[in-house]
Structure formats: structure tokens, C-alpha cells
Nucleic acid binder design. Structure first.
Length: 575
DNA sequence: GCCGTTTTCGGCCCGACTGTTTTCAGTCG
């Protein structure tokens, strides 16, 4: 059983307990444990009972439920809870403005068990007659159902980033002396965002009216003196918070999150006789302010170094900070080269020369040209003959360029049976080979794993490209057994890619951290298909930072001579 | 239900906005 499946059951237990009105701390315990399993890189079903218990937030009871799930595929506790309420009530719970009390009330008074039931109840006028409801609540529920149908789901971080900067420009135009900071999951470098969070300081209350007047606002969800929410075009919710300048550090900390990180940090504050909110850090006894103007000051007052936002996910970063084990994370400026891009020879939009100059402008000192191989006929993939001719052209252009070195290469398809799409003697004549799966992604897990393991055995494969094949918000990862692949890659000296295309971000941060810990060397790649594509390295860097990677963990942070020597073809398998 | 540099029992993060309730509960982030 996969971790995500176990985590889903635990989370649902939390939801059902909440509708039942159970102990809120018990509900939190199930949700905590769910998140812990989701973040855990190893398959929990393979853990010994003692190791399961050792996971933070997993105690005797939850460990028992997880063990039952692994052994029988179901949890009797979960089934008993689920039998108390219709399954569709959980959809009602997830509507904006509907919490456990409202869901339980609607079920109890009106037998609402699904969103369809709720729609009927609204149409019949029954909802407004329930005590505690009214015409306002009725309208709110109608809007929530409307939004649920139109705007279900999350948004790709790169899309949110674009909208964020248009919004920031609008805000700054109205209030040039104010400071606006992007916070929330976007600042933490997340892959997708549920909403867009902006913090304002040194601004008057009028900034809220200015937000509401923004041309891209479709609907105002709430407007107050310090907090407003709007729905922008494409369904993205934006929240603006206003605090005094003296509280900017505390507010940055607070609104950057994550929730799990903040809860842990507040807990730490309480144990030190302090209380932390978005305005500052205060002593519990006399409410004297201890810190608040800067974010680093908050952490410092709690006896910790400043923690980079990308690490604030409640995955042990506070303990690492306390004991002086925070890594010095890689930065975009540490990247010296890129080993994955495409040109007009296949499905890229720009020439070899244009790509080289763009890479140089992006601060890189080397670039591998890795067009597709013949299996990708749609992309005009290269056969052996064309691949070698293309390499000769790349070498010729390299001779004419200053300030950047071009490497020859290929992104070679891994065929469905695990053989490489180009002959060994062709691959051997190139500087670098990225091996990737592009077809038959729906293969079952065992076949996909065997396929990739076989490809890694090819001695000319230097890098495994976008290992799981996932497309965020579009396509699930393949059934690949990532543990088996990581183990093989470490043994064989094959590097694994963090592909920076905003839809891929593949490897995922949890897997990247795990691969690094097992001795796999990581490569950050743009997979650029045009001169603008080198921006993707920012997203690859975000993922690497979330994984806790340092420059020393990443091959493409090395200068070219060292990089060459580190590639598998020159280094072979580690001893 | 989990957990312990005060604790194996008694805690468990904190504040803003909305709608309806005339003093606050529910929801959200």
C-alpha cells in the first residue's frame, strides 16, 4: 500500500471525526500523522512496527490503524466512521465557508449528504429556515457551490508567480512608499499554490480599497481594515494582510508558514514563556515585546538561526536549526551549467547558437545540447546518424563562442522494454547522455521499474531525466518504485535530475532529499525548449532547496573540468 | 491521539472577518 493511500484514509478519519464533533486534538493527531506519512520518502508499508512508532506523531493507536491498513487494505475504525455519514458529506465540508459544524447541522436538520442535496435544499428554501442560517448564509453557500464547480483545485506556482507580479505592480503603483512582500506557499517554493498571499507594511488602510479596485478582481470575498480576500481571474484567490512596519518580521514569519512549522514554532515559544503572533513575539507575563521587526530577530529570540522558507514544512527543520544542522542551501547563482535543453533540431524553438547565448546571459558557463532521440518521431527525434552530425555542428559552434562551453549530448528515450533508443557506439561518442521515459507511462509499476533499472545498466547513461514522468495538476507519476531506482542509481553512479519545467519539478523534493542521502548525485536542469526556458532553473533550485540540497550535492554546481570528471562515463560506479 | 530540557498527566497556536446570536460561534489561513 502506498503512503498516499494510507495518508488519505488517516486524513479522512480526521474529517469524519470533525463532523462528528470529536476532540479537536484527536482530529489534529490524525491529520498530523497523515501529513507525516505523506512526507515520508520510504514506503511505510515496508517499515518494521518499531520504526513506524518512531515516526513523529505516530503513537500506539495510529500505528495500529496503519498496520491494519497495510495488512488488510482497510481500517475498521475508518469504515465505522464512514458508515455514520454519507460519503458526499465530505465534499460539502470542503466548500468555502462550510466547516464541520455547518456540515453536521445540514446533515442533521436537512439530511444533506452531498453537494447535490445541498443544491436542492437551497432551491427549496429549506436552508434559510434552519436556526443559525439566514439569507446571507444561503447566498454564501450558493457562491461556494458555484466556485467549487468553476475553480476546483490548485494552481501551478509559476502561474501564481506571474499573477503575483502583476498584482504587486498594481499595489506599488498606488502606494509607492509601502512595502509589499510575497509570502505563503509561493515564498516556500511550493510546486502548486492554493492561493496568493501578500503582506503590506507602511501602507494606509486605503490599500484594501486599492486591492478591491484591481482590474483583475472578479469577486470580493471579504474586506476589512487589516485583511482582505479577492478572487482574481482564473479563480486564483489573493489575500492581502496589512501590519505596522514594526511587525513586518513577525508577519513575514507568520504568513509564510507552513501551518505545521508555525504550530511547532509557537509551541517552542510557549515553552520559553513567550507567545508568538503576526504582530510580534511577546513575554507571557507582562506582554513586553521581545522581537517583531525582522524575521531573523524572531528566530534569534527563540534561540534559533533564521530558517530558509523552503525548509519550513514541519519536517524536522526546527530540530536541525536547534542543533546547528541547517544546511547551507544551494542558490540559483551557484549553478554553473545546464545539461538538458533542446533546439530546432527537434522540438526546441531556437537554434544552438541562440540557446548558447541565452544560457551565457543566464550566468551559465557550460550547456549540453540534448535533443530528443528517434523514438519521439513527433518531435523529429534524432537517429544515430543525425545525432552524430548534430554533435559535429555543436562542436563547430562551440569553437566560435566565448564565455560558454557547449557539450554534445542527447536526451535518449528509454524504450518500453528498457533498451536505449540509440546504439551504444553512438551514445559513447557524445559528452553526456540523459535517459528519459516519454512513452507508455501507464505501464504497471513492476514493468516500469524493470524498464528503468535496465536502462541504468547501460554504461553510457549519465543522468536519469525527469524520473517519475509526472505532470503537476495533469498527470500522476508513473508506478516506478523510486526506492529501487535510487538504490541502483547510487550503485551505478548515475545522476538523477531535478527537472525545472514548472509542470514537472521532477524529482519531487522528498525524493530528491532521499536520493542525496543515499549517495545519488543530483543535476538541476532547465529542459529549456527555447531561450526563455532557462528561467526554469529557478524552479529546479526551489525544489533542490526544499530538499535541503547544498551546492556540493549538485553536479551542475561544479566547474566544467570537475563536472566532466564526475560524469558516470568518466568516473564509473562509486567504489 | 500524541507527547515530555517544567510534564507519563494535562496540556495541545492565534487572530481577523462574516453573519446572525445583541455578545458570539464558525470558518479560515
Amino acid at each position: 500500500m502506498e503512503n498516499v493511500a494510507i495518508a488519505r484514509v488517516l486524513a479522512e478519519i480526521g474529517d469524519l471525526l470533525e463532523i462528528r464533533g470529536d476532540n479537536p486534538f484527536k482530529i489534529r493527531a490524525y491529520r498530523n500523522a497523515s501529513q507525516v506519512l505523506l512526507d515520508h520518502p520510504e514506503r511505510v508499508s515496508g517499515l518494521a512496527a518499531a520504526d513506524l512508532r518512531a515516526l513523529p506523531g505516530v503513537g500506539k493507536d495510529i500505528a495500529g490503524r496503519v498496520t491494519e491498513l497495510i495488512q488488510t487494505g482497510v481500517s475498521t475504525f475508518h469504515q465505522e466512521l464512514a458508515a455514520e455519514f454519507p460519503a458526499g458529506l465530505l465534499d460539502v465540508l470542503r466548500l468555502q465557508g462550510v466547516g464541520p459544524k455547518t456540515a453536521a447541522l445540514l446533515f442533521r436538520e436537512l439530511q444533506v449528504g452531498s453537494i447535490d442535496d445541498l443544491t436542492r435544499a437551497l432551491d427549496s428554501g429549506a436552508v434559510r429556515d434552519v436556526r443559525g442560517m439566514g439569507a446571507g448564509k444561503e447566498a454564501q453557500l450558493r457562491k461556494a457551490i458555484d466556485d467549487h464547480q468553476t475553480f476546483a483545485g490548485r494552481h501551478l506556482a509559476s502561474e501564481v508567480w506571474k499573477q503575483a507580479h502583476v498584482l504587486l505592480a498594481h499595489l506599488a503603483e498606488g502606494f509607492p512608499d509601502a512595502t509589499f512582500d510575497l509570502v505563503g506557499s509561493l515564498r516556500r517554493g511550493a510546486e502548486t499554490c492554493g492561493d496568493l498571499d501578500v503582506l503590506a507594511t507602511n501602507a494606509p488602510v486605503d490599500v484594501m480599497a486599492h486591492l478591491v479596485g484591481f482590474g483583475r478582481v472578479e469577486r470580493v470575498l471579504g474586506q476589512g481594515a487589516t485583511k482582505s480576500s479577492v478572487r482574481l481571474v482564473r479563480g486564483l484567490q489573493a489575500d492581502l494582510r496589512l501590519v505596522p512596519a514594526i511587525s513586518r518580521g513577525a508577519a513575514l514569519q507568520y504568513f509564510t508558514g507552513s501551518k505545521a512549522h508555525n504550530i511547532e514554532l509557537r509551541d517552542r515559544a510557549l515553552r520559553q514563556g513567550l507567545t508568538l503572533n503576526e504582530y510580534g513575539l511577546y513575554r507571557l507575563d507582562d506582554h513586553a515585546s521581545v522581537a517583531g521587526e525582522t524575521e531573523a530577530g524572531i528566530y534569534e529570540a527563540l534561540g534559533l538561526p533564521w530558517i530558509p522558507p523552503e525548509l519550513r514544512e514541519g519536517r524536522g527543520e526546527l530540530e536541525a536549526a536547534r542543533t546547528g544542522h541547517l544546511p547551507t542551501l544551494v542558490e540559483r547563482s551557484d549553478l554553473r551549467g545546464d545539461l538538458h535543453c533542446h533546439t530546432t533540431a527537434t522540438d526546441g524553438k531556437d537554434s544552438i547558437r541562440a540557446m548558447a547565448l541565452a544560457a551565457r546571459d543566464a550566468g551559465l558557463t557550460y550547456l549540453a545540447i540534448t535533443d530528443h532521440s528517434q523514438a519521439l518521431a513527433m518531435a523529429n527525434g534524432l537517429d544515430e546518424h543525425r545525432a552524430l552530425a548534430h554533435a559535429a555542428v555543436v562542436r563547430g559552434i562551440d569553437d566560435e563562442l566565448d564565455g560558454i562551453t557547449l557539450l554534445t549530448g542527447i536526451e535518449c528515450d528509454i524504450r518500453a522494454d528498457g533498451t536505449m533508443d540509440l546504439a551504444d557506439d553512438c551514445l559513447a561518442q557524445l559528452d553526456v547522455v540523459v535517459a528519459s521515459v516519454h512513452s507508455q507511462l501507464a505501464q504497471d509499476g513492476d514493468r516500469m521499474t524493470d524498464r528503468v533499472l535496465r536502462a541504468l545498466e547501460c554504461p553510457w547513461v549519465d543522468i536519469l531525466g525527469h524520473p517519475t514522468g509526472r505532470m503537476l495538476l495533469r498527470r500522476e507519476p508513473s508506478g516506478l518504485d523510486i526506492e529501487a531506482v535510487v538504490t541502483a542509481a547510487a550503485r551505478l553512479g548515475v545522476a538523477m535530475e531535478i527537472n525545472g519545467q514548472p509542470h514537472r519539478r521532477d524529482l519531487h523534493d522528498v525524493h530528491a532529499r532521499w536520493a542525496r542521502d543515499r549517495g545519488v548525485r543530483i543535476v538541476l536542469s532547465s529542459d529549456a525548449h527555447g531561450v526563455g526556458g532557462f528561467d526554469h532553473l529557478h524552479w529546479a533550485t526551489f525544489t533542490a532547496r526544499r530538499a535541503g540540497l547544498r551546492p556540493a550535492d549538485i553536479l551542475t554546481c561544479q566547474a566544467l573540468p570537475d563536472l566532466r570528471a564526475s560524469l558516470r562515463r568518466h568516473r564509473g560506479a562509486p567504489a
